Amino acid sequence: MTGSRSSHRRRLLQARRHPLQTLLSLVILLLISWVVWSTGAWLIGGANWLIVTENLPLFAVGSYPESERWRPLLWLALLSLMTALTLLQPIISTRLRISGLVLSWGWLAMLPIGLLLLAGGAGLQTVSSRDWGGLTLTLLLTGFSGLLALPLGILLALGRRSSLTLPRHLCRLYIDGLRAVPLIAVLFFGQLLLPLFLPVEIEINRVLRAVVAFALFAAAYVAEDVRGGLQAIPGTQLEAAAALGLGPWQIQRLVLLPQALRVAVPALTNQAIGLLQNTSLMAILGLVELLGISRSLLANPAYIGRHLETYIWLAGLYWLVCTAMALMARQLERRHPSSTSAIPS
């Protein structure tokens, strides 16, 4: 208590010696308060949110047939339920807590369930991918692209660290080449140029082309994140695994990769969030995800001049989804902390 009083007295004396610094701090605080107050007053009383409230179904599912909108909405509800169950695990009693394995399989099942609900089949009416859009399409692109990019990135990271010359140089060429190319160029090639090289009778779905382009691009960055995790593991791990009689593939599968992926969780989370945000580039190439829906709505004469409300709404929606992803990744880190001091059993 005495120490806190003395430190407080010391700060007051320092403020008296530097009045200009104190005045500048007060001015900055007043400026921040004014900005927060003005922004809040505009958001509550000055903004016109009709463009958002009247078009919430469009932001959620795009131009999906109205009679079948329950399908993408059901998938979004399942995703929200899985997110809530995952984030509430630390505060749920041990008796009601869901195991991490069940949650993992539940998240993996969300992608085929979403594809089945959106595309149709198994008794559901078939809906063309041209009618997919909004938040549903954004999450679908992110999920499938990440699912393809992760194993491909792991293989590239292992290939770049390989002792074989040809695979090592090919993986290095791929990783360095994709990282040197802007994402919009890869998407442009996948959406517009790739069909020109295929026979006329072969037509690849636009959503599939987008997923493959995103996955190929993200895999190069995932490979570098995984390679960083592999480099963080001390060499004594390899020596101990070899002393136990494990083969090269067993060492990679049982010793190196589990620890490397735990170390790389923060970087991989950053890549997943970046992948979600980069799906907005598809609006330039014709897919009506969140940004594409907003652009089409702003072209409506009834909503001319509502750009600020629209983009603030989009920013808040992206922030909500990205924050949920970051919190789930942080919970994964706490549940499985990275450790390179011992070989996992």
Rank of each mutant, 00 (worst) to 15 (best):
A329S: 08
Y221G: 06
V181N: 00
G121V: 10
G121W: 07
A122C: 11
P195D: 12
Q331D: 12
R17N: 11
A77Y: 07
Q277K: 09
F144H: 00
Y318K: 03
A60E: 09
E201F: 10
P112Q: 05
S339A: 08
A213M: 07
R295F: 10
I44L: 11
A223Q: 01
L275N: 06
W132G: 06
G62E: 08
L193S: 09
A326Y: 05
L43A: 14
P167H: 03
N300W: 05
R160S: 11
T138L: 02
I273T: 11
L298V: 13
G40R: 01
L208Y: 07
P72W: 02
I44W: 06
Y174V: 05
P151W: 02
L173R: 00
V127K: 00
L275Q: 07
L85H: 01
R10W: 12
L230D: 01
A215V: 05
L74E: 10
W70F: 14
M328E: 13
L139C: 02
A185W: 09
R5S: 13
S341L: 11
W132V: 13
S4R: 06
A299R: 07
L88T: 15
L20D: 15
A210C: 07
W107A: 08
L268N: 01
L298G: 12
P337G: 04
L88W: 06
A122V: 15
L216W: 05
A60V: 07
A272C: 10
H8V: 13
L101N: 07
H307P: 03
W132K: 00
G274A: 10
G245Q: 06
W75V: 14
Q14R: 09
Q259T: 09
P90N: 04
S80H: 02
L164A: 13
I98R: 00
L317S: 08
G286H: 11
L183S: 11
L73H: 10
R16E: 15
T39M: 06
L24F: 11
Q237L: 09
Q331R: 06
L254E: 15
L117S: 01
G146P: 09
R172F: 12
G100W: 08
T83Q: 04
G143R: 00
H18F: 08
A109N: 08
R160C: 08
S129F: 09
T310N: 03
R227H: 12
L152D: 04
S296F: 07
A41W: 00
L275D: 02
V207M: 03
L135P: 06
I293C: 04
L216E: 10
G62W: 03
R306G: 09
M1P: 14
P234M: 03
L178H: 09
I251Y: 03
L276V: 14
I251R: 09
L23W: 10
W49K: 05
G159W: 02
L29P: 05
I204L: 14
I175E: 03
F188E: 04
L276F: 15
A215K: 01
L261K: 02
L78M: 14
A241L: 05
R306N: 13
P266T: 10
M325G: 08
I204P: 07
T236N: 04
W132I: 13
V263M: 04
V265C: 01
L58M: 08
